[in-house]
Design a protein around this nucleic acid. Structure first.
Lengths: 156, 156
DNA sequence: TTTTACGTACAGTTTATTCTGTACAGATTT
DNA sequence: AAATCTGTACAGAATAAACTGTACGTAAAA
C-alpha cells in the first residue's frame, strides 16, 4: 500500500540520502536499500523491498545480507510472520562513522605491516644510489601509513 | 633503463602503496600511477608511464590529468625536453587528507541543502501519521549530515 | 613552409560489475 | 505425509567501467 501524499517526496529523500551513504563504500543499491529501510521504520520483508526498489528479490537478499554484515540492519522477529523482517539500525552517525573509521585503521595497519616486510627485502649489500633512494621513499610511505593510522585512532 | 636489483621490490611497493591510495577514491590505475611517480622521484613522460604500467598512452593521459586536477601531481618544465613531465607531489599526508576531507565537507553540505529543500516540499496541510513520521525521519537525516559536516570541519 | 612530434577527443572494444531467473534445500503449513 | 513457502546459490544476461587505437589540432623542428 502506498501513501500517495508522501510517496514522491519519500523517494526523493531516499535517493538523496543514499548518495551520502555511498560515500561509506556502500554500493548504490545497498545505499538505497538502507535509506528505504530507514525511512520505512517498520521492518520490511524481501518482497516489500523488492517491490519498493524495483529490483529482484535475489538482489535484495544479497544486499540486505551485506548491510547486515556491516551491522547496519537487523533481522527482526515478529510472531505469526514467516518471512524475514529487516530493520535499519537508527543511530546513523555512530553506526556509519565507527565502522568506517575502523575500516581505515584495519586497512592502513595491515598495509603498513606489508610494507615493513618489504623493507627487509631490500638487498642491503647493494648500496647503489637507486637502492638508497628507494629505501628513503619506502620509509616515507610507511610514515604516511603510520600517520593515517594514528590520525584515525585519534578521532575514533 | 631498468635497475635489475630494485625493480621487483619497487613494483611490490608500488602495488601495496596503491591499495592505500585507492581508499581516497582514486581508481586503481590512478593509484598505481601516483605510486609509480612517487617512487620515481624524477619527473616522467607519458611514454615512460605507459611503458612502466603496461597501459596505453591514452590511459596515462587521462589518469595523469585526473591526478593533476586533484593537485596530487604537477606538470614540470625542463629545458630541452618537449614532452610533458609529471611529478608526484611529496607531502603525502597533508595532500591526500585535506583533499579527502574537503570532498566530504562539500558533499555533505551540498546534500544537506538538497534535503532542507525537500523539507519545504512536504505538504504541511496533510498531518497524517505517515506525514509526521516522514518529517521526523527527514529531520534526523539532516542532523546526520550536519554531524558529518561539522565532524570533518573539526578534524580538518 | 613543410614536416615531425606530442597530447587528447572520441568511438568502439574489452573487461568487470551488477542484476536476474531458475532451481533447490530447508522449513512451515495442510 | 505431501504440499507450499522462503531464502539463497549459481549461471548467464544486462549494464557499466576501463582501456585502446585511430585521428586530429596544436606546437616545435627542419
Amino acid at each position: 500500500m502506498l501513501d500517495y501524499h508522501t510517496e514522491p517526496t519519500r523517494s526523493k529523500i531516499m535517493n538523496e540520502f543514499a548518495k551520502t551513504l555511498e560515500m561509506f563504500d556502500l554500493t548504490p543499491l545497498e545505499a538505497r536499500l538502507f535509506a528505504y529501510l530507514y525511512l520505512a521504520e517498520k521492518p520490511k520483508t524481501l518482497d516489500e523491498m523488492s517491490e519498493a526498489l524495483g529490483k529482484s528479490k535475489t538482489s535484495m537478499s544479497t544486499s540486505v545480507r551485506s548491510l547486515s554484515d556491516l551491522n547496519l540492519v537487523t533481522l527482526v522477529w515478529k510472531k505469526g510472520v514467516r518471512k524475514d523482517l529487516y530493520q535499519a539500525n537508527s543511530q546513523l552517525f555512530k553506526l556509519f562513522m565507527s565502522s568506517y573509521i575502523n575500516k581505515w585503521i584495519d586497512a592502513t595497519n595491515h598495509r603498513k605491516d606489508a610494507l615493513l616486510e618489504m623493507d627487509t627485502l631490500i638487498d642491503s649489500s647493494d648500496d647503489s644510489e637507486d637502492q638508497s633512494k628507494l629505501n628513503d621513499q619506502l620509509t616515507k610511505i610507511i610514515d604516511f601509513h603510520s600517520q593515517l593510522e594514528s590520525f584515525f585512532r585519534r578521532i575514533k
